[in-house]
């Protein structure tokens, strides 16, 4: 059974279709990239997948997440899916974290929630042990200090690691990362991409990686879907789509990315 099966999804705001007739399947453990520029509907699609569309938007078609129909489903059906079936990592780690809550407590929340769901004890010592485990998992240094820090007291890269730890703590089958490195420095981006790749492999999660940046996407996924103004223009393995793009739009994107890439010269080892 596919983990996520989006079938002919259309999302409308009033009379305007923001996503049109879009289909996408993610198998368990697969790593899929969703490429698009601003207004392509890539983030909307991800939100729709967990039933979190902004007010006033209307979804049609079908989204099966872990076997459950999401389109038109009531909150009670959707809530247990979030976290367990799919967890999010967002672009801006500063706004994704509560500014007034220490990191330790923040990471403990999804852990406590998951433990309740699994019928495990909510003993403080056990939760704290798990918090430490997940912060170690995302390779954060000096965990005692970080657990006692507020988000503004740590670096942007560290915040994104915390956000990843929180997503990981839900033990999701699918990790949805929406432009997770766009706000980060290049060297930090490289580290986070490396971390994401490793974690997804080791935890056996599937990954839906949303980005406008072609080389970044190429680093972490096997398959890509290219969106333009809410419509899929091309779908396939990364090497095929980037190596011999068929659609005019994909060609233009690949050429533009390649132009900047060429300007950098041969990769230095």
């Amino acid at each position: 059974m596919s983990l996520l099966k989006i079938d002919k999804l259309t999302i409308r705001a009033g009379g305007q279709a923001l996503v049109k007739d879009m289909s996408l399947t993610i198998e368990p453990g697969a790593r899929v990239g969703l490429i698009g520029e601003s207004g392509s509907g890539k983030s909307l699609t991800a939100f729709a997948a967990v039933g979190l569309l902004p007010q006033g938007l209307e979804a049609k078609g079908s989204i099966l997440l872990d076997g459950v129909e999401v389109v038109g489903a009531p909150e009670e059906t959707l809530r247990p899916l979030r976290g367990s079936a799919a967890a999010f990592v967002f672009q801006e780690p500063l706004t994704a974290l509560d500014p007034l809550m220490k990191i330790g407590r923040q990471v403990a929340e999804p852990i406590a929630r998951r433990r309740r769901r699994e019928g495990k004890s909510a003993k403080r010592s056990e939760i704290v042990a798990e918090v430490r485990h997940y912060l170690e998992r995302v390779a954060l240094p000096d965990i005692d200090r970080i657990m006692n820090s507020y988000p503004f007291q740590i670096s942007g890269g560290q915040r994104q690691r915390v956000a990843i730890a929180m997503a990981l703590a839900c033990r999701p089958k699918l990790l949805i990362a929406d432009e997770p490195t766009t706000a980060l420095d290049v060297t930090t981006q490289a580290e986070i991409l490396e971390l994401l790749s490793t974690l997804v492999r080791e935890e056996g999660m599937a990954l839906l990686f949303i980005s406008h940046d072609l080389p970044v996407v190429a680093k972490v996924v096997e398959e890509v879907t290219v969106l333009r103004r809410g419509e899929i223009v091309e779908q396939g393995p990364v090497r095929t789509v980037f190596g011999s793009p068929q659609h005019e739009y994909t060609k233009m994107l690949v050429n533009a990315a390649a132009a900047f890439d060429r300007a950098l010269g041969e990769p230095v080892q």
């Binding site: 705001a13 009033g14 983030s43 938007l57």
Partner: peptide, 11 residues
């Protein structure tokens, strides 16, 4: 994403 949320509904 943002441009969607910023449009004023007709009503």
């Amino acid at each position: 994403m943002t441009d969607v949320l910023e449009t004023t509904p007709p009503a």
